[in-house]
Design a protein around this nucleic acid. Structure first.
Lengths: 365, 365
DNA sequence: AACGATTTTGTAATCGATTACATACAAAAA
DNA sequence: TTTTTGTATGTAATCGATTACAAAATCGTT
C-alpha cells in the first residue's frame, strides 16, 4: 500500500502498457485492441482505479459542475424544482452547485465570475431579478458558458428559457372565480419588479377587462410571494369597505397566509371570500380548506431545464433562436373557492334542519 | 485579446516577474516585497486575472467541494438547513454539492466514491439510514475525507454529529399534553428504522411511563414523516373505539396531514383531539389551527454543522472524542392543543347566549 | 570591504490525466 | 518482394497553478 489512491500510471504499470493506452481503453474503447482492453480493465479492477476528476477537468478545460442560482432555498417551490434538476444532471455526471441569490453575501458579480472565468460548465438561473447587463457576455456569445433560465427570466435577454404560461394561469384563475359568480375580484401580487408578478398581474387585468369587471387599485394588494405578505394582504382586505369576494394570489404561500390571517379574525374561506393560489405546493391540497390553485409542473420544469442545458453544453442545439419551452399549467379546483354569496357577512345561512354546528363544520372544510 | 481567460503567466509577463512570485504575492503576501506586491496587484487588475480553481485544486490535491447528502430535497425542513450550510461554506470558498439520497438512482456506493477517491474535501450527511459499514474507512482514519452528521446519525459510528435532543423534545411534547389534562396520548411515528423515529418514540415511552399513563400499541401509529402518512394515521385514529385525546406527531408534516384528514371527516382540532408536531416548519404557525410544535433551530443546525466540518478539514480539531453538539429545542404553544374535553364528541358545548356559529368559528381557529 | 544571515526572487518539478504526433507492426495492394 | 494503407501503441507536451530548491539581492556587523 504505497499510495492511498491509485493513479493512471499505476494501472499502466501493472497492465504493462502506457498511460495513453489506459486512458484510451477507458474513454475510447474502440480505439484499442480487444486484448489490451481486457488487460487494462483487469488492471483497473485490481487496483480499484478511478480517474481523478480534477486532473481530467484541468486537461479538458471543464469543471464538471453546473451552478444553480436559486432566489430562496427555503421556499418549498424551488426545492422541488431543484430536485428535478439534480436528478437529471447527476445522471450525466455533473455536480450540482447551489447558490442562494437572496443570501446577504451573494454578490451579483459572482455570476460574472462563473461566466467569465469558466468556473462552471453551465448555469441555471431561477432568479429573473438580476441586472440584465449581467448576461451580455453570455447572450452575445463572448462567453462559452451556457445559461438557461427556468421559471423566471430577464426580459429582452435572448437566452433559452423554460417556463410556464403565467398569463394563461392568471386567466384560468379569474375565469374560475367568474364562473362561480364572482364579479368583485382582487389580486395579491408578488414583488413589484418580478417578472412573474408582472405577467400574472397582466393576465389578471386582461381577464378582468375581458369579462367587463371593475378592478380598482385598492383591490390589488402588494406582496412578495411569502406567507407573511399574504397575511398582511388579509389585514388590508379587512380594512376595506367594499371587499372583493374572490381573491387570486400570485403564490400559494400568500394564499395560505391570507386565509390564515382571515381565520384569525373569524372569517371563513370560501364562505366569506374565495381564494385561489398559484404553484400547487405540496401542502396546498392539505390546507384547511384545501386550496384551489394553478398547478405548475415543478418536477418537469426541473428536468426539462436540465436537459436543455445539457444540449447547450454539448453543442447539439443548432437553433438560431434560443429555445423557449412553455409548459402547461392546470387549474386544480379544491375547496377554497365557492359560489359567491349575496348575503352580507354575519348573516347565517342555515339550511333547513341540519344541526348548525355540523353545518358550519361542513362549510369550514 | 489573444486569450479569453488570463493565466498566471500573463500576469507574470506584464508584471515582469516569475509565475512563482505572482502566486506568492496573491497567496502569501508577506513573503514578497512591498514593491513587487504592488506591481503584481496592478498587473492582476489590468488583466482581470482570477486563479483557475481546477488547476489549484489539482496541485493542492483538494477539490474545493463539500458534498451534502440530503434524504429528501423536496422537504422544506431540509432545504432550510441546507440554506444555512450553503451560507457558511460558500463564505469559506467551498462549493456545495447536493445529492438526494432518496433519488432512485442514488447508489450507496457513491458515498464510498467520495470518501475513497477524494472527490470532495468533506461530507455532510443528513441521512442516518445509510448502511453503517459505509463509514468504516472514515471513522478509522483510513480516509482523510472528514464526515459530519447533522440531524440524523448512524448509531455506533464515531463521527462528529450535530443534532438536537430528540428525547427531550418528545418529553416536552408529552408533558405539554399532560399539563392540558390529557391522559390518553397517542403517537405518530416516522419510518421505523429511522434514528429520529426511535429517539422520539423512546422519549414518548419514557414520558408516558413516568406520568403513569397507559400507552397501548394501537395508539402508536406508523408513518414516514410525510403529509400523506399523517393523513393515513388520521384514518386509523378514526377507526378506533377508544381514541387518544392528544396526539404527538414525530414531524410537522404528519401533524398537518393528520389534522387535514380529520377535518375532511368533520373533526376539529383541538376540540376533538389535541395535536402537537415536531420541527416547526414555516407553515406550521400559519396552519388552521396554528400548530403547537417542538421547534428545531434549523438555521443554527446548518451553520454549526458547516463550521464543524470546516474545523475538521483544517485539522484544527484535536479532540480525541468526535465532537457532539446537541442544540436546544423549544416548545412552541399555538392552538392545535387545548384542554382535554370530558364530553363525548358530537355533544354541543354552547356557552350561554353566544351565537353558535360564531362560537364554533372561535374554537376552529 | 568582507562575511554571514536573511529576505526576495527565479527555475523547474509537480499534481494526474488527456491527446497530438510519431512510431511500430500487420495486412492489403502493387 | 516491395509499397501502401491502416491499426495499435508509445512518447512527450499540455492544462494552469503551487512550491521545493537554488540563486540572487539585501542587510547588518566587524
Amino acid at each position: 500500500m504505497a499510495r492511498s489512491v491509485p493513479r493512471i500510471q499505476d494501472v499502466a504499470h501493472i497492465a504493462g502498457v502506457s498511460t495513453a493506452t489506459v486512458s484510451r481503453a477507458l474513454n475510447k474503447p474502440e480505439s484499442v485492441s480487444e486484448q489490451t482492453r481486457a488487460i487494462v480493465i483487469e488492471a483497473v479492477e485490481k487496483t480499484g482505479y478511478r480517474f481523478n476528476q480534477t486532473a481530467r477537468n484541468l486537461r479538458r478545460r471543464k469543471t464538471g459542475a453546473i451552478v444553480v442560482l436559486v432566489p430562496d432555498l427555503g421556499n418549498p417551490f424551488f426545492s422541488q424544482i431543484l430536485s428535478g434538476i439534480e436528478k437529471t444532471l447527476s445522471k450525466s455526471g455533473f455536480s450540482v452547485l447551489i447558490a442562494d441569490t437572496k443570501q446577504p453575501d451573494f454578490g451579483h458579480d459572482r455570476i460574472l465570475e462563473y461566466i467569465r472565468y469558466n468556473r462552471a460548465d453551465g448555469l441555471i438561473v431561477l432568479d429573473g431579478s438580476l441586472p440584465p447587463g449581467t448576461y451580455d457576455e453570455a447572450s452575445t456569445g463572448r462567453s462559452n458558458t451556457p445559461i438557461v433560465f427556468a421559471c423566471e427570466w430577464s426580459d429582452g435577454v435572448p437566452l433559452p428559457t423554460i417556463r410556464i404560461d403565467n398569463r394563461a394561469g392568471a386567466l384560468m384563475a379569474i375565469a374560475h372565480l367568474h364562473d362561480l359568480g364572482h364579479t368583485k375580484i382582487g389580486h395579491i401580487a408578488g414583488p413589484s419588479e418580478n417578472i412573474l408578478t408582472k405577467e400574472r398581474l397582466a393576465g389578471t387585468q386582461i381577464a378582468v377587462s375581458q369579462l367587463g369587471l371593475e378592478f380598482p387599485d385598492k383591490w390589488s394588494f402588494p406582496g412578495n410571494f411569502s406567507i407573511e405578505s399574504g397575511s398582511r394582504a388579509a389585514k388590508a382586505w379587512l380594512d376595506l369597505d367594499d371587499r372583493p369576494t374572490g381573491v387570486f394570489c400570485a403564490s400559494d404561500q400568500m394564499a395560505l397566509g391570507f386565509i390564515s390571517e382571515l381565520s384569525n379574525h373569524g372569517y371563513l374561506v370560501p364562505d366569506d371570500v374565495s381564494v385561489i393560489g398559484f404553484d400547487d405546493i405540496e401542502i396546498a391540497g392539505r390546507f384547511i380548506p384545501p386550496l384551489t390553485t394553478i398547478r405548475q409542473p415543478r418536477s418537469d420544469i426541473g428536468t426539462v431545464t436540465a436537459k436543455t442545458l445539457l444540449m447547450q453544453i454539448s453543442g447539439e442545439c443548432h437553433d438560431i433562436q434560443p429555445p423557449l419551452e412553455v409548459l402547461p399549467v392546470e387549474l386544480i379546483i379544491r375547496r377554497s373557492t365557492g359560489p359567491v354569496k349575496t348575503e352580507a357577512r354575519g348573516q347565517k345561512q342555515h339550511s333547513g334542519s341540519i344541526d348548525p354546528e355540523i353545518s358550519t363544520r361542513r362549510t369550514a372544510l
